[in-house]
Design a protein around this nucleic acid. Structure first.
Lengths: 349, 349
DNA sequence: CTGTTAGCGCCTTCAA
DNA sequence: TTGAAGGCGCTAACAG
């Protein structure tokens, strides 16, 4: 049915070994012979048998990219960039980079890791915030260590570093610093009663951004009522909508709201609108990440810009081994404060 | 280094065949034996060697999902839904479903198909509009036929049917009907000068939505100035922004704009705002797809809702063979007109 | 219900 | 520069 290496060899009148050599390119073969082999490959429409090849060579050309929620452009942009970088990579065999969506489920994260381990993946890129649950972190750490032990390159992108030396490289977002600058901006505008719509409690991303917020408040001597002004939710617009209503219930005099990310911020804006409050006239709103639509929102969203595409592409090159790991294996990726129309001075009640 | 089946067999004091049988589950094994084997697997931290397994069984547990642009939630939602459905599927071996982002490039589409063929993928789901270029369509058709011939299940999701019988199932979006209903809605509101921001010329999705638009105009006797009121672009907000400026240049008296999709529509709204025009006071705007943020836009976007999640999940089940193919192999997925605040009657000049 | 026996298709020494 | 030979780790008959 399907042509095999042996078929190609027979047609080109060479040994299977020779065919293998021209296909893998990493071995001297006479030009005429190569020509003949390639023609045979073409005529037979031969496609290498990946499993057989991987088995014999004890390596595979699969690279897995784990994301928490592929419907969220935050992950879509990073993962797409990583794939593009891997697709462009020059190498003997072309790598097959694939995106795996965990949906935020720790079990599926582990399942995917196991599946990739089963395929003897060449590399694994894990993106986005990690779950803080110690048991799960330990399980993931152990899995990654095992993968690394088997020769799989591990790259963390937008995720905090892991202890141990099994990780090839980590690109960590400066969520703390970004969160701090954002809140400093609001304080600078004169805001004193600032609500915070945080992400899921158990995510590192959530904690770090919140820590930055807290630090800014503390530095300004405003940390007293902090806890009452923080509501946790998920990373979607619905969560932002509901959380703002809750915040308003707790403190009607709120003049600003910082959201876990841009999507949540847009939900927050919608809730404020529905309550008859104007943004930023009555309440200022800020997001995080700067997704493409944030600049077009009405009003345009003040946020912290994370270079998602660049980070994803770099993660891809790192996974390929096409770029040296940063010193110490860890690079911090900083965010840039984007001040737009959704934040302004507080209303002078 | 890594434990093998034989290691497990030795430790459990059974033959390798028995271990294989308990691992694959599809064969009777005594409870006590199974117990012993599973314990050994656990103690050795054994993970099946995928390539070896695939080679021996001549099948793999890989399922590929091709998308045009994973940074676009249109694809993210469908792909995520498909993965979720596949992850939930009950089967002997757990399937590894992976997303491959072509970035809209025909070469990468073919490359990914070849790579998946090399891995002897169990199934391939191809999502989104196809390129109209005959040469490329033929190449894709041939690739898919080959894959199908090798036993790979082929599912098309949000893509028009392909000639031949190599495709297992097709879920086609009714872009024509949706486009038509949308424009009929605008005509019903009293609009006569309607601009159209189309997607890339060479995509089926673009053509079908535009055909629906044209049909509605023709039925109302308004098709005369059509061509002058159509501008093509890509599927991003930038394109919508620029296209609207061009349309306005051509016809300042435009009272409505239909966009290729929601993202483009939002770009269009931004351009109108920047020109000092209000939506829908001066110009009505409509999109297509109904992404999550469209309901929150200001004003909320009138659009045609495509059930992306449901379609993606169904494609996943189809790829798994967990659901029978629709009669004739083709199911049409209809869109629902969502009338919201971005469309209203034309200004009474 | 379990063990034995052949390969699956390719890569990779080792020779020539 | 090329060929021959062995084995990668697993599955699938075939016996028993």
């Amino acid at each position: 049915m399907t042509a095999t290496l042996a078929d190609v060899a027979a047609r080109a009148q060479v040994s299977p070994a020779t065919v293998s050599r021209v296909l893998n390119g990493n071995y001297p073969v006479a030009a005429a012979t190569r020509e003949r082999v390639l023609r045979a490959v073409d005529e037979l429409d031969y496609v290498l048998n990946g499993p057989a090849s991987s088995l014999a060579a004890a390596t595979s050309d699969l690279i897995g990219i784990l994301v928490n929620d592929i419907a969220d452009p935050f992950f879509g942009i990073m993962a797409g960039a990583a794939q593009a970088a891997i697709g462009e990579g020059r190498g003997a065999r072309e790598k097959l980079s694939v995106i795996c969506n965990t949906g935020g489920s720790p079990e599926r994260e582990l399942t995917y890791l196991t599946l990739l381990q089963r395929q003897r993946a060449a590399a694994v890129i894990v993106t986005g915030g990690a779950l803080e649950d110690p048991a799960h972190q330990a399980a993931v750490g152990a899995k990654l260590a095992r993968l690394a032990g088997a020769g799989t390159r591990i790259v963390l992108c937008g995720r905090p570093p892991l202890p141990g030396d099994s990780v090839t490289a980590t690109l960590a977002f400066d969520n703390r610093g970004g969160g701090r600058r954002l809140t400093e901006h609001l304080i600078g505008l004169g805001h004193r009663r600032i609500g915070y719509v945080a992400g899921p409690t158990e995510r590192t991303t959530t904690r770090h951004r919140l820590e930055g917020h807290r630090a800014a408040l503390a530095a300004a001597g405003l940390a007293n009522a902090l806890d009452a002004r923080v509501v946790h939710g998920s990373y979607d617009r619905r969560s932002g909508y509901d959380a703002v209503l809750e915040l308003l219930r707790r403190e009607p005099e709120l003049t600003a709201v910082v959201a876990a990310n841009d999507t949540v911020a847009l939900g927050a804006c919608a809730a404020l609108r529905d309550r008859g409050l104007s943004v930023p006239g009555d309440v200022s709103v800020a997001g995080f990440v700067d997704l493409p639509f944030s600049a077009d929102a009405v009003p345009a969203l003040t946020t912290v810009r994370l270079p998602l595409y660049e980070a994803g592409a770099r993660a891809g090159r790192l996974a390929l081994g096409a770029e040296p790991a940063p010193p110490g294996g860890i690079a911090t990726v900083h965010g840039e404060l984007m001040v737009r129309a959704s934040t302004a001075g507080p209303r002078t009640a």
